[in-house]
Amino acid sequence: MAYKPQYGPGTSIVAQNRRNQMNPGHELEKLRSVTDEDVVLILGHRAPGAAYPTAHPPLAEQQEPEDPMRKIVKPTDGAKAGDRVRYVQFADSMFNAPSQPYQRTYAEMYRFRAIDSGTLSGRQIVECRERDLDQYAKFLIETEMFDPATVGIRGATVHGHSLRLAEDGMMFDALQRCVLGDDGVVKYVKDQVGVPLDRPVDVGKPMNEKWLKEHTTMFHSLVGTAFREDEEYIEYIQRIHTLRTKYGFMPKEE
């Protein structure tokens, strides 16, 4: 029988959302559309329309050594063209944001190729070739892994994920990269490191509280689904904790 990954334990909606995001066979709902130019503007690595700067000549022009692994692992478009490695970083509010750093890394590892992720408590960075990055970032913004109010695209000065939301429901951002307009639409006015954009980039309306509660991948006993409500998840975590604690003492089977 072929191996079928389970992705994660749990019977709650949070656990199911986690599995959905991780499972590359599950098509995530597309909630908004941003253009390629919008993504390039927010990322701020190059001017829109400019050619991709390269770090090395295209692989086709290089004399590569004979290597069976090179035949098995096909390079991504970015690697093939010799693009630079660039990044996108997200900060997710603890108030029911649709994704969270560890979840992002798990999901990206399952769904994307040729990435290097960095996972921290309040932010998650993913690095890859620039051409691939544009596609990945677009996916991460357009699908249900993003919410304009509780998720921020922040390259630096990320503080805010653990703070209370602002009156208008936006996550705190010292650089105020995105603003909620009178029309209820969130617009990015600065790129991810805080450089003002030539034109605002529209990322759609914030999702409502009900939607966030149904689509979050975070347990939160006050504003969402409490961890204690998911007995299967608790059992799994306790098993892992017990095993790794015992392993610390190097148990020997009699």
Binding site: L163, A174, V195
Partner: peptide
Amino acid sequence: PSLPVTIPYGPARGAANPNT
């Protein structure tokens, strides 16, 4: 939380930080 007048970290450090 602080709202700095200039951007404190990153490549844009030192640039103005307009904030409503």
